[in-house]
Simulated assay, not measured.
Amino acid sequence: MPFALLDRFLVPAPDQARVGWLRGVSYAHRGLHGNGVPENSPTAFALAIERGMGIECDVQRTSDGHAVVFHDWELDRLTGESGPVIERRSSDLSKIQLTGGSDCIPTLRQFLDQVAGRVPVLIEIKSKRDVRVVPLCLAVRRTLEGYRGPVAVMSFDPRVSRWFSRHSPRIVHGMVVTENGNRALLATIKLHLAFWQAKPQFLAWDVRDLPSRFVAAQRERGFPVLTWTVRSAELAQRAADCADGPIAEGAGVRA
């Protein structure tokens, strides 16, 4: 009960007119990739747009302060290059080809120009404890200026959602969560502390941790709940039962 009262006091329910578009949409996890189409590639995004799906993508900062669409901290798994993304300039990264296809790493600007408001977009801002979040948040906000499509930012790092809540509240911002099956008291306390710090307007929850009493309570309060990564028909059904929209790939993408 104390947690519920503090949730309501510290994190007010979002304005439904601002967040309602998040519901009822299936989002392609890093675009519709696979079968020779790399993740987070222009081709994967084009396939998602063609299918009328929303798109979830990952964003990192370059050494010269730009936002690029790439998941891993290192280049090694997804390209023929190696080393940290953050140590490369945007112009250099845009020439690096993604393994398994002919596309190169897109900037966030190129991605948004490609989507052009045709489908909803979720931008996951990559972060970790020893990385400053402000430069990347600023880079994303600058890139989003003037964009006229449904778009939201989200992150596992509560500092990201908190930054947008304070400095750019008109950009819809959310918190990404995995409980890893841990619902002990200490884990529950940490979850609520992160929620209070982040002050999100929606949640993106690990489908493996659904159903969840916390999720159900916030959903009842009006927080849209998306769920990731939906990779099977079974998980798609769980997403339909417990959340407002799947972030899916592979067999989890419904025909």
Rank of each mutant, 00 (worst) to 15 (best):
I171Y: 00
F202T: 04
R170D: 15
H167Q: 11
Q197M: 12
S212W: 08
L186I: 14
F202K: 02
F164E: 05
Q197F: 06
V177E: 06
L210F: 05
S165C: 13
I189H: 00
N182R: 15
D206N: 11
S168W: 07
N180F: 13
I171V: 15
D206Y: 01
Q201K: 11
S168M: 00
F195S: 01
R183G: 14
Q201H: 06
L191W: 09
M175L: 15
A204V: 06
H192P: 01
F202L: 06
K199R: 15
N180G: 10
I189R: 00
R166H: 13
V207L: 11
V176A: 07
V177G: 00
H192L: 08
I189P: 01
N180I: 02
T178A: 14
L191A: 09
T188V: 08
K190A: 10
Q197G: 06
G174V: 03
L191I: 02
D206F: 03
A204Q: 06
G181Y: 12
T188C: 12
R208K: 12
L210R: 06
H192R: 15
L210D: 04
L186T: 14
W163V: 02
A194T: 06
V172G: 03
D209P: 03
S165N: 12
R208G: 09
E179Q: 09
L186H: 13
L203N: 02
P200I: 01
N182P: 02
A204G: 08
A198K: 01
A204F: 01
H167S: 10
R208S: 10
W205C: 05
W205T: 05
R213M: 10
M175H: 13
I189Q: 02
P211I: 01
I189G: 02
S165H: 15
S212F: 03
P169A: 14
M175T: 04
R170G: 15
G181E: 07
V172T: 14
K190C: 11
A198E: 00
P169R: 12
Q201L: 08
F214Q: 09
L193W: 11
A198Q: 01
L191H: 10
K199I: 04
K199G: 00
G181H: 10
H192E: 08
A194G: 14
G181L: 07
Q197Y: 05
R183L: 12
I189N: 00
S212Q: 09
R183I: 07
I189D: 04
L210Q: 05
L185F: 12
H167I: 02
N180W: 11
L185N: 08
D209W: 04
R170Y: 10
R183F: 15
N182A: 12
W196T: 03
L185P: 07
L191T: 13
E179M: 12
M175N: 03
D206P: 05
K190E: 11
L193H: 10
P169H: 08
F195N: 02
Q201N: 05
R213H: 12
R166E: 15
P211S: 05
R166S: 07
P169S: 14
